[in-house]
């Protein structure tokens, strides 16, 4: 008995250290995300040139005038990378929010009402899971025709089922809890019951999933643009810019900088999501208590 106690206190002390160690990661993520959000908002003010103007000599290496060089038609790469933030980040955020809303509403309906509704919704979700994500998104985007809007529609179709599955299982767990049943007996309709009694159980895991999904969404969107199924030229999209780099291989700067932009944004969102997951995970809630003690 005392051994168990000793083990527990020992673990608590380790957890306390981990909590302090973990913060820098979340902080780094937060700072980078904030940086890119600012870049996206103030892009028209901070970019040195027009991202679409083909004003310069083609394929210039990075220099004092053009920090990131110029591309194959003489556009300033730095200005295009800055403008790219206005394309990828808002679209990814919007996509994740819509996927979360659609997925969790459908998942809640499936979990709460069960039966035929549940079967129908979840079998459709299974179909989406029958494909690797990019493959299905690619197939859908291709048949809709290449455009940013269609790429986002394709991504919505492949993204909502993850939220539906998580929400459904959480709702299933909460549906028969005594306080939910008590609410129903007091005369709450199914929608009041869902929104007032069940929903609070669902929110935090779904939000964690969404935060982790922003990075994935940016990767997916830039992947589709890389395949020519997302942003249409001359839109300054990071994925499409890397694709330009494939064609102009010796001019490494064309692809290098937009790729770094993708990497830093995605990494930052993943740092944040990871920290958030730890904070909401029951096992690390023990850590929070450990610190309070």
């Amino acid at each position: 008995m005392t051994d168990v106690l000793a083990v527990q206190t020992k673990r608590r002390s380790r957890l306390r250290i981990s909590k302090q160690l973990r913060t820098p990661l979340a902080l780094t993520g937060g700072v980078i995300v904030a940086f890119w959000l600012l870049v996206a908002v103030f892009a028209p003010l901070i970019r040195p040139f027009d991202p679409l103007a083909q004003d310069f000599d083609r394929l210039q290496a990075p220099s004092a005038a053009h920090w990131f060089g110029t591309d194959q038609v003489g556009r300033d790469v730095l200005s295009r990378v800055i403008s790219g933030a206005q394309v990828s980040i808002p679209l990814a955020l919007m996509l994740v929010i819509f996927a979360m809303l659609i997925g969790s509403v459908l998942g809640a309906i499936a979990g709460y009402f069960g039966k035929a509704l549940d079967e129908t919704i979840m079998r459709i979700a299974d179909l989406v899971f029958a494909f690797p994500t990019i493959i299905l998104a690619m197939v859908i985007a291709a048949s809709l025709g290449p455009s940013l809007t269609n790429a986002v529609i394709a991504m919505l179709i492949v993204s909502w089922p993850a939220y539906a599955r998580v929400t459904r299982s959480l709702v299933l767990g909460a549906r028969n809890a005594e306080y939910v049943v008590a609410g129903r007996l007091l005369g709450n309709g199914p929608f009041t019951s869902l929104s007032k009694d069940v929903l609070p159980n669902v929110v935090s895991p779904v939000v964690v999933l969404a935060t982790l999904d922003v990075g994935t969404a940016i990767l997916l969107l830039s992947g589709l643009s890389f395949l020519g199924l997302g942003a249409v030229p001359p839109t300054p999209d990071w994925g499409a810019m890397v694709s330009d780099g494939v064609q102009n291989f010796s001019s490494w700067w064309i692809a290098a900088f937009p790729g770094l932009a993708i990497l830093t944004v995605v990494l930052a969102f993943n740092f944040l999501g990871d920290a958030l997951r730890d904070a909401l995970d029951p096992r690390s809630q023990e850590a929070v208590q450990g610190r309070a003690l």
Binding site: G215, L219, F249
Partner: peptide, 12 residues
């Protein structure tokens, strides 16, 4: 690992 765009890493 899960944040690197693979098509970019391939080029690099």
């Amino acid at each position: 690992g899960i944040s690197v765009p693979s098509f970019w890493l391939a080029l690099v």
